[in-house]
Simulated scan of single mutants.
Amino acid sequence: MRLVHTLAFAAALGLAAPALAQPTPAPRQPTISVMGTGEAELKPDFATIVVMVETEGDTVPKVVADNKKSSDDAIARIGALGVKKDDVRTQNFQVFETPIRTDKDGKEIKVPKFTAQHRLRIKITDLDGVGRIAGEILSGSNMLFQSVSFGLNRQEEGGDAARRAAVKDARRQAELYADAAGVGLGKLLTISDGSAQPYAAEFNDGVQMRSMAKAAPMEAPIVPPATLRYTANVQMVWEIAERP
């Protein structure tokens, strides 16, 4: 009889254990979630002109040597325009087999076997002189004008200003929704950062203009932008509280 009572008591505890192990879930706190966007505009500090020096030859050593000479001449010409030596840098250099060319009748034209391309980035801090310098480059020889863009020396300033504006916009929206719903805005729970993106003012991107040998000096029609625009977004979540 004692064994039967012991087994029955153990069975009762086994059935009751799972129910005792499950706590009562806490009520979920209601929230307000909004996406804020922000913009910032700052005056550019410099312009970047990209040019390319291209040479052709029947051997790799010759085409490389010719390209070096043409590049040295191009850099000297750029320096004569008042651009500092440290502001001229190689962006890319490559040597490849010259693609096949044909005339208007579709007949193959004999071309040098190899082509060398040296792409240079030129930083210009005199924004008012960008058009003049670009025109001088185009009036020279051995240079292929590719693009001009504008930027800030401290890119993070634009992004940070846009992020601050995005947070301000998110709070404005949250307060508006809370007021319209008749509730209060409680504790800030989460902030999810979105990347800040600069607006790059770039001209002649992908368009190549060949410099003209012995051409008269000219000024390229380049007007620097008054400001560069940066954008950012942020996701923010607040608790909903009782209205004070």
Score class of each variant (00 low, 15 high):
E219L: 08
Q155R: 12
I137Y: 07
A174T: 03
S147A: 13
D179A: 14
E219V: 15
N153T: 12
V183C: 12
R210Y: 09
F203D: 03
R210Q: 13
G158P: 07
N153P: 03
D193S: 05
D205T: 07
Q155M: 12
P217D: 01
V167A: 04
E175S: 13
F150E: 06
V223W: 13
T227C: 13
V148C: 01
Q146W: 08
P225C: 09
A174Q: 02
A201L: 05
G159S: 15
S195N: 14
G184S: 09
S141Q: 11
D205M: 08
V207E: 06
E175C: 07
Q173Y: 06
R132M: 10
P198R: 00
Q208A: 00
A216Y: 04
M209R: 04
S149D: 09
A226N: 15
V183Y: 10
I133Y: 10
N153V: 11
D160C: 05
L138S: 05
E136T: 03
A200I: 14
A181M: 10
D169F: 05
G194F: 00
D205E: 11
S147P: 07
R210I: 07
G184R: 03
A215I: 04
M209C: 01
R154N: 15
Q146S: 14
V130I: 10
Q155G: 05
N204Q: 14
A200Q: 13
I133L: 15
R163H: 13
E219N: 14
N142S: 13
N142T: 06
S139G: 13
A216M: 06
A166I: 04
G151V: 02
S195I: 12
L152C: 05
G194V: 00
M209F: 03
Q146R: 15
G186T: 08
M218K: 12
S139R: 13
K214Q: 04
N204S: 14
Q197M: 08
V207L: 06
Y199Q: 06
S195W: 09
I133N: 08
E202A: 08
E175R: 11
Q173G: 08
D193C: 00
G159V: 11
M218E: 09
Q208F: 01
A174D: 04
R171E: 07
E157H: 14
K168A: 07
V148Y: 01
I191R: 05
I222H: 08
Q208Y: 00
I222C: 03
P217T: 01
N204T: 12
R164K: 12
G159P: 09
L228D: 02
V223F: 14
N153Y: 11
F145H: 03
A162M: 09
E219T: 15
N153H: 12
E202I: 06
R154M: 14
D193R: 07
D179T: 13
K187H: 12
M143R: 02
P221D: 13
R132T: 14
S195H: 12
Q155E: 14
F203V: 06
V207P: 02
P221K: 12
I222Q: 04
T190W: 04
A174M: 05
R154F: 15
A178G: 10
Y199H: 07
V223M: 15
G182D: 00
G151D: 09
D193F: 08
F150M: 08
